[in-house]
């Protein structure tokens, strides 16, 4: 799961990115300390300690940073962020037109991003999934979901 120094295959992670993440963790630690300092009395100690530890540990990571490019099993940077963007769009749409209706656009879009060009397979897979999800979540669980444009919500 983590980047292992001896790992030779995978997607590259440049030193600049590792530096940026270490700084982001330190920044988050700073926010925790700042919020902790606003607290009164006993509520303040623990956050200040935790935030300070985050900053100190980031400093260690920055100090140990080298110039080599490491490998990771996670998705490459651009594709990962486009995927996350698509998920954000899906969640936004789900709140407006329902989870299943939004799925009809989301599944093909992400499949194309993943490099699948077999359009028939994508179409059949999307329809089959939406029907299955409808049966499991709406009928079996009978949970109230945001209303769907299709399938009668």
């Amino acid at each position: 799961m983590a980047v292992e120094p001896e790992k030779l295959e995978g997607n590259p992670v440049r030193p600049l990115e590792r530096l940026a993440v270490a700084l982001a963790v330190a920044l988050a630690g700073g926010v925790v300390v700042w919020d902790g300092a606003r607290q009164a009395g006993a509520s303040a100690y623990f956050p200040i300690a935790v935030g300070s530890a985050m900053i100190a540990l980031s400093a260690v990571s920055v100090a140990r940073l080298d110039r080599e490019t490491r490998m990771t099993e996670e998705a490459p940077l651009v594709r990962g962020f486009v995927g996350l963007g698509m998920l954000a769009a899906f969640i936004f749409l789900a709140g407006q037109i329902g989870f299943l209706t939004a799925s009809i656009a989301f599944i093909p879009a992400m499949a194309l991003l993943g490099g699948d060009r077999n359009f028939l397979r994508i179409a059949v897979g999307t329809v089959a999934f939406v029907i299955m999800a409808y049966v499991v979540f709406n009928l079996a669980f009978a949970q109230p979901f945001p209303a769907e444009l299709i399938l009668g919500g």
């Binding site: 995927g83 698509m86 998920l87 899906f90 969640i91 789900a94 709140g95 989870f99 799925s103 989301f106 599944i107 879009a109 992400m110 499949a111 194309l112 991003l113 993943g114 490099g115 699948d116 077999n118 397979r121 994508i122 897979g125 999934f129 999800a133 979540f137 669980f141 949970q143 109230p144 979901f145 945001p146």
Partner: peptide, 25 residues
């Protein structure tokens, strides 16, 4: 199921499951 098709399905199931447990977008 091809990975590229499975990925969005997993994300949808996670979204549905998350919504179902607290009813909050």
């Amino acid at each position: 199921i091809p990975a590229a098709l499975l990925a969005p399905m997993i994300l949808i199931i996670c979204s549905l499951g998350t919504y179902a447990s607290t009813n909050a977008m």
